[in-house]
Amino acid sequence: MTLDLDLQGKRVLVTAGTRGIGGATVALLRELGATVLAVARSQPEGTDDPLFAAADLTTAEGCAALADTVAWRLGGVDIAVHVLGGSSSPGGGFAALGEEEWRRELDLNLLPAVRLDRALLPGMLAQGSGVIVHVTSIQGRLPLPEATTAYAAAKAALSTYSKSLSKEVAPKGVRVLRVSPGWVETEASVALAERLAEQAGTDYEGGKRIIMASLGGIPLGRPARPREVAELIAFLASPRAAAITGTEHVIDGGTVPTA
């Protein structure tokens, strides 16, 4: 990016900040001069990031501990980017989803953002400024019933929560936005495409086509890249987007067939 986004010195928290969208967002915001605390369950082997915090954000205790860490290491935040999410639910439609599967999806895709916002927002409101970015998913609108019903429902709940929060805090100087990716070529999705390719007796590009077909096609012809999603997040979090709040910004190569 060549546009000066005026993010120098901003204090930023990024969850799931060691790989995929989160890792790309951490790297880009640091390039742009922000002070970024990256959070994940554990630091990848062979890395030594001085601004890293380990936390299990699927629990209330983990979120509370991270909020204390933010206060100690950053003195508060100007920007919070909630990237954490994912799904490990089995295929098989609604019948395969028991209490444990539903709770796991909510604990991963909805409640960490709610809990961290509750802890961090008072500081933003006190300073009269701040930005919160919730990373949702196009599956909130385009669920895949075979395997992602609970994930899609949790992300849809996150989107609704985000919109409501934006209406409450925008008059007090805090912007709340959503970024809604489609299929993104992260480490996990590469592994999935390779596995599907092996099962189908094809190559990686063939595996990618299998995934795109399951989504009903991607008009752009490829998945988004983590850096592309990070660039959208960086712009929305910057003062260049000061008049944008309460909105959801889809980055899916045209996958969702409606406006």
Rank of each mutant, 00 (worst) to 15 (best):
I233R: 09
A153L: 13
I218C: 07
Q43A: 13
K172Y: 14
V179E: 12
K155I: 12
K167H: 15
I210H: 03
A55S: 08
A119S: 14
K10S: 13
A242Y: 09
R30Q: 14
V114L: 15
G98P: 05
S180T: 14
P223S: 10
L13D: 04
G9V: 08
T136L: 00
V256L: 15
F235R: 00
A152I: 10
S129C: 13
A224H: 11
P171H: 11
T2N: 13
A200Q: 09
A96G: 12
I132A: 09
G62R: 02
V77H: 03
T58Y: 00
L32G: 03
I21K: 07
M212K: 04
S166F: 08
E248W: 02
G75K: 02
R195M: 08
R225I: 06
V81H: 04
K167W: 13
D49M: 08
A119P: 06
D6K: 13
G182S: 03
S88Y: 01
M212V: 01
A237G: 06
A96C: 12
S164G: 15
R175Y: 01
Q127E: 11
E105L: 01
L236I: 09
A242V: 11
E45L: 14
R73D: 08
L13W: 03
H82P: 01
A193K: 12
A96P: 12
R178D: 07
R41F: 07
I21P: 08
P181T: 08
G128E: 04
R104P: 06
E194P: 04
A191Q: 14
P223N: 02
V81P: 03
S137A: 12
A80F: 15
G221L: 01
G91Q: 06
A237E: 05
A53W: 10
V184W: 04
T149R: 00
A191M: 13
L108V: 10
V256Q: 08
I233V: 14
A60C: 05
V70I: 14
S137Y: 02
I210P: 02
A67P: 05
G76Y: 13
A147C: 12
A126Q: 14
A197E: 00
G22V: 05
G217D: 06
S129N: 13
L74C: 08
D252L: 10
R178I: 00
D78R: 00
I233C: 06
T58A: 07
R73G: 05
E99M: 01
L51K: 03
G86P: 13
V83W: 08
P226K: 01
K163N: 06
A80E: 10
A60F: 05
S129E: 15
A126F: 01
P223Y: 01
E198A: 15
R41K: 11
V169F: 11
R209W: 05
A40F: 10
S137G: 03
S87K: 02
A60H: 11
G62Y: 01
G128Y: 02
V36S: 01
I79R: 04
P181C: 05
G20F: 00
W102C: 05
S166M: 06
V169D: 10
H134G: 04
A55P: 02
S87T: 14
G76A: 12
A55H: 02
L106Q: 12
A27S: 10
A230L: 10
S162F: 13
G62W: 02
E228M: 08
T258C: 10
P143K: 06
G140N: 03
L13N: 02
G92S: 07
E198D: 14
V256F: 14
L51F: 09
G221W: 01
L108S: 05
A67E: 04
P44V: 08
P112C: 09
G123V: 10
